[in-house]
Each structure stands twice: as structure tokens, then as C-alpha cells.
């Protein structure tokens, strides 16, 4: 149980997926303009992270590893993730239109979010069990949502700030991300992973 808690805290704070591991930077810079959108994107990503974490773990454990096919890992994982995202999109559209309206527009973007594939590969590299994978994915998603929401909050305030012209847009966003990353470095050393 303690180990699971460590994995969770580790992936939320110490090794934050966005700010320390650099996974999922594209949505971090692209979508983080409003807090509502950022929350929506974060929740959609967490949802897909957990689902795809489980799916890729099952695929690796029951198919790729027993048959000695680890070289197919990249191809198989990305296929599973792409089709899973499609499936989730169709499922939500049919069963829960409200949720679909909230998360729908983000789903196609998630396939090419490196956090998803990155998590799948990391869990295989670390030989996590299924439970550990779920906790790790959940932590990664929460960490991603946290970083995205904080960034969106800062950027909303930034609209009224006087920024040097060449740094407007991406430049200032990256520098803010740097400062946030520095803050998150304060957590390193809290857990040895």
C-alpha cells in the first residue's frame, strides 16, 4: 500500500509528467489558455491514460511478452491507443452526450499526446503490476491536469501584462513553464525513484 502511495505521489509531483519528464508538452502549450478548457483536457487525458495503461499492460503481458515480440511494442501500442481513443469517442457519443460535449473535442488530440505512449512504455520498462500501472496512470493524469490548470490560470492573468513583443505567445509560456518546473524541482529528493 505504501509503495502504491509512493508511485502516486511520485508521478504527480516529483516526476511530474509535463514539467519534469517533458511528456505532453504540445497540449500543455496549446490548450492551456483557459482554466475550463485545461480542466476538460486534463480529465479527458487522465481517463485515456488509465484506460490505455490497462490495455497496453494486458497486451504486453498476455501477447507480446509470452510470444517474444517486444520489437513490435511501438507499433502495437500506438495501434491500441489510437483505436482505444476512437472507441472511447464513439462510446461516449452514444451513451453520455453531456460527457462527450465536455471531453469530445480533446479526444482526437490525445492519440498524439506523448504522455499516453510514454506511460505505456514506462510501465513495461519498470515491470509494473496491473495495480501499480493503474495507480501510476492515475498519478500521471492528475499531475498533467495540475500542471495544465496552473498554467492556464497564470496565462489568464498574463493577458493584462505587458510582455516584450518577441516573447508574446509561446516564448513567455515556455519561460513560465521553466519557472514552474523550477518550483516542482523542490519536490525532488522527497522520494527516491
Amino acid at each position: 500500500m505504501a509503495e502504491l502511495a509512493l508511485i502516486f505521489v511520485g508521478s504527480v509531483l516529483v516526476n511530474n509528467f509535463v514539467l519534469v519528464r517533458f511528456l505532453g508538452i504540445c497540449p500543455f502549450l496549446g490548450v492551456s489558455r483557459e482554466i475550463d478548457t485545461a480542466m476538460g483536457m486534463g480529465m479527458a487525458t487522465t481517463f485515456v491514460l488509465v484506460l490505455s495503461g490497462v490495455a497496453t499492460w494486458l497486451l504486453d503481458y498476455y501477447i507480446l511478452a509470452p510470444f517474444g515480440l517486444p520489437f513490435l511494442q511501438n507499433v502495437a501500442f500506438i495501434l491500441i491507443i489510437a483505436s482505444l481513443v476512437q472507441l472511447v469517442e464513439m462510446f461516449l457519443q452514444k451513451t453520455s452526450p453531456a460527457l462527450y460535449r465536455a471531453l469530445g473535442i480533446f479526444l482526437p488530440l490525445i492519440t498524439t499526446n506523448c504522455a499516453i505512449l510514454g506511460l505505456a512504455i514506462l510501465t513495461v520498462q519498470r515491470d509494473y503490476t496491473l495495480i501499480q500501472t493503474i495507480v501510476f496512470a492515475l498519478g500521471a493524469g492528475v499531475g498533467f491536469t495540475l500542471a495544465l490548470t496552473m498554467m492556464a490560470g497564470i496565462r489568464q492573468q498574463l493577458q493584462f501584462a505587458d510582455i516584450p513583443k518577441p516573447l508574446e505567445g509561446a516564448g513567455i509560456a515556455l519561460i513560465i513553464a521553466g519557472l514552474m518546473s523550477m518550483a516542482f524541482m523542490g519536490f525532488s529528493g522527497m522520494i527516491a525513484m
Binding site: V20, F22, L167, A170, G171, L174, I175, G178, M182, M185
Partner: peptide, 10 residues
């Protein structure tokens, strides 16, 4: 990690 963000931003 922060250095990466700063370098790219600048």
C-alpha cells in the same frame, strides 16, 4: 528541466 524551458523560450 527548467533550463530546457528557458533556453527554448528565449
Amino acid at each position: 528541466p527548467p533550463g530546457a524551458f528557458f533556453t527554448l523560450g528565449i
